[in-house]
Write a protein that binds this DNA or RNA. Structure first.
Lengths: 301, 301
DNA sequence: AAACTCATAATGTCCATGACAAATAGCGGG
DNA sequence: CCCGCTATTTGTCATGGACATTATGAGTTT
């Protein structure tokens, strides 16, 4: 049950160094030691640290939350939970139940049905966006297992990817590259953005996760890209996100837009030359604006 | 151009601690320092370290290779390169060229054509397997950019995923869960295995990357799984792979098979109760064997 | 010659402590 | 209420050392 510090780092995303510093500064987490004096963190501590990381992501400071007991942390976590979860619909309840039963076929059937009822764009913007949050929350609260979350992700990924392929436009405008920052592994957001963008007529070039900023710059140059689309999950450290965006903005041709989306952008401060989108709904207008602005100037040339 | 130690860790997969120890023990990498005394690694050092990591993966010892100059390292790397690359075909050359031109449409066209010429199984086993190695090698040698590798991966992923969906069997046998160990992000191998397995009549349950062993165990119990399929890329540390497999084997019902594949398994020692497959070709026979062994005993009950 | 055993060396991970730059908060003046 | 400044908070890096684990290779047995 107890895990060494290396596992803690993997499971919570908190580096060994930080974990040790917190122990010194705030007296938490104060793990048991094995016979060699190595730290052994309890499952409870791991859970707390996950919540803490989440709260830090929401803008709280370590000094204020590191060391609070689990109940208090959960209390606080309530407040930073997007209210999407609150209006948990009939559909999402059914989906969670299906997930808990591991009925893959049914899961796929439910999602696919919803996709066809709503159409791809609404499905991605509404249903999947909400479900992601709900499933993530359920995991954070220990209501579903890690592998169940994986299962959900894979099924949704499959459905979205299939749908996206059928609407892909190779000659559309604007040309958008999509990726995530190093360390950010969550690619569902990219796929959702890809879906919405493609339906708006854009031409999407997916680079998958974790593209270093310098590589984005090269890709932009070489592929004649108009817009760089980045997705930041709530799990990604705000500092790194900001750093990455700053870095990218400074290296990139100012004529190229940067659009940053995902739940992680809510806590970023506004930044010159970067358009934050806290919702996929904003993609449509953004594309329209871009077209209005760019098409005339291109026709001229 | 020079990068701090945290970036080195990200780019090479060598931990900060190890990098510092090597510096003390072998005098390499001996980076510049910035005005605060923090290490700054040159691009050349990063390149060397990537090669070194590769050689270590192939079984060499740090004491022998850490500190050799770049040319020598590349020399050595030649020898550990799978000979798949040697017989680089006309097709792969054309594909690399297309990739270098960033002609996505052409890239997809080429691959798709090959898929239909060969059929999914052969395409996954032969073409994609070879291309992965070739592209990886090209990156290691600095011939293609990171983002180009990403591009390649995404296109192949899309094509494979689409193809896999059309042949998915929800009531097949054996029931196989597919995933990778924590730290292993390469999921193309899973998709390839999924393709071949599905065509052999198996029922595949993909869990995506990085499922902790304990979660696999739960998934196996809950989903009535017969076989656990894991993929290990060449980049994954052999020690961790072995650790993970041992751990998994000890926790899992002995009746459940473990099949480990990917380029990373070549250097693992054989292990009781784990079947290593260095090639996707071995999947077919494995499934056949499994069916012969299990079906009679099931009919009896 | 192959297989095995065991001491020795090689190697990665962890620990403790301290330094310091960057980010943030809180304060006071415009 | 906004802006700029200082004090504090916080993460990252450095050093040096301990230790468990794993591989190596010599010596022994089959």
């Amino acid at each position: 049950m107890p895990v060494p510090i290396s596992a803690l780092e993997r499971e919570t995303g908190i580096s060994k160094e930080v974990a040790r510093k917190w122990e010194i500064r705030y007296g938490f987490p104060c793990p048991e030691r094995d016979e060699n004096g190595d730290r052994l963190y309890s499952a409870k501590q791991v859970l707390s640290l996950r919540l803490i990381r989440r709260l830090l992501g929401a803008g709280m400071r370590p000094g204020k939350v590191v060391g609070l007991d689990l109940a208090t942390l959960e209390q606080l976590a309530q407040n930073v939970t997007p209210d999407m979860v609150a209006k948990s619909s009939n559909f999402s309840t059914r989906l969670l139940e299906t997930l808990a039963r591991h009925d893959l076929r049914q899961l796929e059937y439910l999602l696919r049905g919803q996709l066809h009822r709503q159409g791809l764009s609404l499905f991605a913007r509404e249903t999947v966006a909400r479900l992601n949050v709900i499933v993530g929350e359920a995991w954070l609260r220990g209501e579903i297992r890690v592998f169940e979350e994986h299962l959900y992700s894979e099924v949704v990924r499959g459905i979205l990817q299939e749908a996206v392929r059928t609407v892909t436009e190779t000659s559309g405008a604007p040309r958008v590259v999509l990726s995530t920052a190093p360390g950010e592994l969550h690619t569902l957001g990219l796929l959702m953005a890809n879906a919405v963008l493609s339906l708006e007529g854009a031409c999407c070039i997916g680079l998958g996760a974790q593209t270093p900023s310098i590589e984005i710059v090269t890709a932009v140059k070489v592929c004649a890209v108009d817009v760089v689309g980045l997705s930041f999950s709530i799990a990604h450290p705000a500092r790194e996100s900001a750093q990455y965006l700053r870095d990218l903005r400074s290296r990139l041709d100012p004529a190229v837009d940067i659009w940053a989306g995902g739940l992680g952008v809510a806590r970023l401060r506004r930044m010159e030359g970067v358009r934050f989108m806290s919702t996929l709904e904003e993609i449509g207008p953004a594309v329209q604006t871009w077209l209005k602005r760019e098409i005339p100037s291109r026709a001229r040339t």
